[in-house]
Design a protein around this nucleic acid. Structure first.
Lengths: 201, 201
DNA sequence: ATCAATTTTAAACAAACGTTTTGAACATCT
DNA sequence: AGATGTTCAAAACGTTTGTTTAAAATTGAT
């Protein structure tokens, strides 16, 4: 009834499933889904080869499990539409903070998008709620003339595209600077909203 | 001594090597390098499986051959530095036009970048010359105070990042509009340079 | 302590991959 | 026409992939 399983290797005490998920997240982000083998995952996780299929039922299910926390996070997001510009800032800021915390998942998502992967359908399910919320916010911005842009769809693409690639953008990714992540997110939000307005004319 | 080889299938008369290259370019852009099999390429090209290895010496060499014209194009680019802002506009415009003409190659490049592929070294060789030219242009812009930005490196990243992802950017990709590709390129250049200046303060 | 269920391991599995082999078909030159 | 080198197609090759199997080890309840 000991609370600890036999510690394996370097005093890690995580469950096997978590070890597999952590290793898979890192490897997928680094090498891509197809570029990562089950054997690599198990070696990195320091578990036996068969355990991926045993615990998750296959490599693809490991991938899906990685995004389960995100799905639930995104489904519970709510924004106050009475001040749509504030809601827009809040949305962007939350996304940027999320990106900083889960940059591996963002990187995986970018890979899957650019590769037209067969797993995009599932990823769409995960990210669609936040996408739709941004659309609602932008629609409200347009209705109340809180900010000007050509079309909701164009603004949606611009914002999501900028947010997604923002860790490659030197102006949105000053993590090496002296600023706190809060400040960085605020700066990035200003950059995006300015950019959005700059596209008006 | 007939000028035509036996026409195969639907009156295509391209060389086998070109057929393979065309099919590979399309499939790589759609499914990625690793997601594309030699068998798919040969089926799409309507040639026998062994011909990839026979003509090119392997799948990877097909990939390399796709970028050979680009390497030569980029090596011969020259810009007049006496007016660095004009040179910057010219550079961006040429890149956007190139992107419109060879969007498959750009897409492949994006994939390889985001996947950290083992072929990045070769791709770096291809694109480094234009990268360095842009750096020279930006340095000249900064020296002559032709345009303001925080640092050459940051501006470099911003411009290349924007140019690379520009086909996902609704404001840089109005191909469905009534505008000519020339006008589109001009608009995109203005967008980029405005964005660059907006990052100043 | 004993037994049943769960978890882990090592080995083997079929399928798919890029590549090579073999010989036939072809073009080209004398 | 005959010889020679090139190009092609079908089959097979050796790896590597994700997964499964079967036995061993571990766990938890009685």
């Amino acid at each position: 009834m000991s609370q600890f399983k036999q510690t394996r290797g370097n005093e890690k005490n995580k469950e096997v499933k978590d070890q597999i998920l952590s290793a898979a997240k890192l490897l997928f982000a680094e090498k891509g889904y197809e570029g990562t083998t089950v054997r690599q995952i198990c070696q990195e996780a320091d578990v036996s080869l068969a355990l991926v299929s045993y615990h998750f039922g296959g490599k693809e299910n490991v991938f899906f499990h990685l995004f389960e926390p995100i799905r639930q996070l995104f489904m519970n997001m709510k924004y106050d539409l009475s001040d749509p510009l504030c809601a827009l800032r809040s949305f962007c800021k939350q996304f940027i903070i999320f990106r900083n915390e889960e940059h591996e998942l963002i990187r995986i998502l970018q890979q899957e998008l650019v590769m037209n992967s067969p797993r995009l359908e599932m990823l769409t399910d995960v990210f669609l709620p936040s996408w739709e919320q941004l659309r609602v916010i932008l629609q409200e911005c347009q209705d109340k003339k809180a900010i000007g842009f050509p079309s909701v769809d164009a603004a949606l693409n611009f914002i999501m595209g900028t947010l997604m690639q923002s860790h490659n953008n030197a102006f949105l990714n000053r993590t090496q600077s002296e600023l706190s992540s809060e400040k960085i997110a605020d700066l990035a939000v200003s950059f995006i909203i300015n950019g959005l307005q700059a596209t008006q004319e």
